[in-house]
Design a protein around this nucleic acid. Structure first.
Lengths: 268, 268
DNA sequence: CGGGAACTTGATCTCGGTCAATATTGGTGG
DNA sequence: CCACCAATATTGACCGAGATCAAGTTCCCG
């Protein structure tokens, strides 16, 4: 089944065989252990997943799967960045999601086919779960099924906010929103230096926001001129005034920065 | 029809007590029984849901819930049309979903608050399930949890296609897509006469597609002039050439291109 | 019928797209 | 380490799709 170009699991034989060590022990060194669908699971619930997981990696620009392909696996990203997009016949492209460490991608239609194409934006690694086994585990474990449902629900909310951004905001407002979104999603590390590595090229940002690369570039220049950001090398942006940036980017009634980290089932 | 704002369940005592009549018996006359999350469930699985369900109804323009409100219930629509939208501070509005018979709405954030506002676009009725009970039933029934996960996944796909429509298509292409979408979602009845009742005003369509009402109106006129549609009274559209309409509206589905390996860059 | 809401159409303006010319960056080999 | 080259970004000039402003027109519904 799930082909593994690299290695099924870089695990010493001793660990695989013995029941003295739960399969989930390998997860302890995983950056995504406390993120996304893994976070709410204890080691017991994680065990079957860890046992079916294989490792995969892709270089920048490599494709994980294509729209229309039969869905073979889910991928939980452990490093790097992956974009999902839809293509139009004439070459227009809409990036519909950007995934990074902790995110699960590979959701498909009811007919088990991918709707989107996924491509590594930065060299990426992931835990791969065969679709069949993954679904079977869902059908056998309520907790996991609920966790997945919650994950998809969260993604639906993100997608919907994205639709509002593209449908209603002006170009530079969209870019402001993008900067804050990336800062939030990519840097879940505690204190921020105010420096955000974008990972996406101007063209990719344009495809994400429904603009052209020239307009995106102009928007960056405008925000820089407004003293809200500073542009650095290596595609890094320094956020100078998060407050005003957030006002430009505001979508929906309340603050655009819900504590998005994987955490308790309820807050406030 | 049965009206009445909130009742736990107007079930004859005999049905509630006796095992001779499952609680789901009332569902047999429901238009949504074979749609959405109810469809995959047999009467046994439906029973607990039916037992917790109450009926609600809203007039045109009435609000089901507001963004930021604490989520109290899920609503499975049994008649009418409901729109979910996000508002911006300055009055701009994005309709992010249109729901009709069979659709479940009321999904919230992890913090149990609504992200969107829901409003009846046409007088609507729904089966209401208290959030707590609904979630509890999910946590106790794998099948139901999986069904809900599948429903949300489907919605995610729709939302993503919507984002592509708004981000990439020209105004009249978006309207073409809208017409076909409404035809498909509102008329699940067998053979179509080619007549689609839109239910939404021009302004609402505009808010859905990220346009202005004038532009929407011009797009309708243009499609009419192109002999693809005919405009009738009562906000009804006659589809004259579904084929060409679909070509304008096409997103995602690549036709015959071999899904070769990593296409390094966009063109060439 | 009458009046208000929804729709259509026209005139003009503007934001963002398009085309095109540099400028900058980053990677590679000498 | 530097020179060179391709990829990416920036900036400018111009254009056009869609927004805006402003009348009219049609459709409901009492």
């Amino acid at each position: 089944m799930l082909a593994r170009p690299i290695e099924p699991a870089d695990t010493p034989a001793v660990a695989r065989s013995a029941s003295t060590r739960p399969a989930a022990w390998r997860c302890h060194s995983c950056a995504g252990r406390s993120l996304g669908v893994c976070a709410p699971l204890d080691d017991d619930a994680l065990g079957p997943l860890a046992a079916m997981a294989g490792r995969r990696r892709w270089d920048r620009r490599q494709v994980l799967y294509c729209a229309g392909d039969r869905a073979e696996a889910f991928y939980k990203i452990t490093s790097g960045v992956v974009a999902e997009f839809m293509d139009l016949a004439d070459g227009r492209r809409q990036i519909v999601a950007i995934h990074t460490v902790g995110d699960l991608c590979g959701y498909s239609t009811r007919s088990r086919r991918h709707v989107f194409t996924a491509q590594a934006i930065a060299p990426a690694e992931a835990c791969a779960f065969g679709s069949e086994k993954f679904s079977a585990y869902m059908r056998g474990n309520v907790q996991f099924a609920c966790v997945v449902a919650g994950d998809v629900r969260e993604r639906l909310n993100q997608a919907t906010i994205g639709r509002t951004v593209v449908g209603q905001l002006r170009s530079f407002e969209r870019v402001a929103h993008f900067i804050l979104e990336i800062e939030e999603r990519m840097g879940p590390n505690g204190v921020d230096t105010g420096h955000v590595e974008l990972h996406l090229t101007r063209q990719e940002i344009a495809d994400y926001l429904g603009l052209t690369e020239e307009t995106v570039s102009r928007a960056f220049s405008k925000l820089k001129q407004m003293r809200l950001i500073e542009l650095g090398g290596a595609n890094v942006v320094a956020v100078l005034d998060r407050q005003r940036l957030a006002e430009l980017a505001r979508v929906g009634g309340r603050a655009a920065s819900p504590p998005a980290i994987a955490q308790p089932s309820r807050e406030d």
